[in-house]
Nucleic acid binder design. Structure first.
Lengths: 226, 226
DNA sequence: GCATTGTGATAGTAATACTATCTTTGCACT
DNA sequence: AGTGCAAAGATAGTATTACTATCACAATGC
């Protein structure tokens, strides 16, 4: 599968960057080390200056790829959801049963990562930690409406719509498919975060993904079954 | 009821502030206008300098009450959840049926605010908007563990535990009460935010709280009923 | 061989998140 | 009425941030 993916790369909307980081060594380095450094420092303490230092380049160069650190974050999240959508479509192709397809979707959504689908310069596991801890900051801003109009959240919306479609397929009468999906997606993040940092808010134990998946499966199927 | 509350005030843990803002006119002014200004500008653009200007005081004075804007945010969120807990305890007192009590809890959790329980200098509706839009930023930081150890999130945890208790009462066999509650609480915020800014991610329509409540009620009772 | 493009180096700016210090004001107690 | 003390005001200063601007250099493509 790695071989198959060698010819594929995730396309991110070109409004998000000034210069496509996939097209140069230094661009890929920005992405790769950007992920690692945001994970290490947290978004607040992360700066382009520090990143430049780390990759042996300069602030100015990074600004030629991304207008701001907000845009870099948008890029990473966008990449993540496009990747998740790709994994989803792959995993459910040729599966007949609507129930099975939905179950697979929930497994992906609950954060299971297998190594088969990785891309050279991106550490998907670290990226997922960033999405869990930082993605709320990408949309909980005064600029949401502008960013949304620019299409910055399309990949997340597309991923959610795909799963909402699976729910509708399973039970066309359930009245809240979109709300249920966004609840599942956000909950998956929060439960992971809580398990690690505020354990009294969850029953999920860290490093046992099975529990999170069970919780979400139980919630979903009890809610949508007829 | 207003009369009753005239003698009550919400106590916030004194580790959160340097000087209790409830004890002075200027302190209450910091809280009142802090809420309004954060709502107007968003946390990112909000500064103590701007707040000082607005209340006709100085930065230095505000720093004598709160160590940082992070702490002010923690204070506001903490106040909010203590207030919600108070409302909850009030609303379910003397109600026999576990089901009814849980239903009331979900109404409160879904964000319904009635005017009877307001406090002089705090605009609860605006505060709720802040909690919806900014509270994730209070814990999605590299400092969570320290803040948690200091007890900054106790009021949120206490509120969640109360509702988890109601769930356990209704169905002692449901294995994920804490996770369900935090999912409900976070979902209530996100669904509200999405309804306003990213409507394709939800089926809830803005300004119709009934829908959000229905969604959460449906989710909860289908999930926990035996 | 020349233009273009990408990158590096360096400097500068307004604003932020504080910290420090010194002065003034108001009230409480004698 | 005078003194003491705490709260608040006024002002200044610092390191850092999130950029923007400019100029020079080196590789590449035609």
């Amino acid at each position: 599968m790695k071989r198959l993916l060698a010819n594929i790369n995730i396309k991110v909307d070109d409004k998000i960057y000034l210069k496509d980081p996939e097209t140069s060594e230094i661009g890929r380095n920005i992405i790769k080390n950007g992920i690692l450094l945001i994970d290490e420092l947290g978004l607040e303490s992360f700066t382009f200056r520090k990143l430049a230092e780390r990759i042996g380049s300069t602030e100015a160069t990074i600004y030629r790829y991304f207008e701001s650190k907000h845009k870099l974050l948008i890029y990473l999240i966008s990449w993540y959801w496009s990747w998740q959508e790709y994994r989803l479509m792959f995993a459910i192709s040729n599966i007949e049963s609507a129930e099975t397809r939905l179950k697979i979707a929930i497994r992906i959504l609950s954060g299971e990562i297998n190594q088969d689908m990785d891309f050279a310069h991106i550490d998907e596991e670290t990226l997922q930690r960033i999405v869990v801890a930082e993605s709320a900051k990408a949309y909980l801003t005064k600029g949401v409406d502008i960013d949304n109009k620019e299409g910055f959240f399309l990949s997340y919306k597309r991923f959610c719509r795909r799963i909402a479609d699976l729910i509708r397929e399973f039970n066309p009468d359930y009245p809240y498919p979109a709300s249920l999906v966004s609840t599942l997606a956000e909950s998956a993040h929060y439960q992971k975060f809580f398990a690690r940092h505020l354990p009294s808010l969850t029953n999920i134990k860290e490093n046992s993904e099975k529990h999170l998946e069970d919780f979400l499966l139980d919630l979903t199927f009890k809610t949508i079954s007829r």
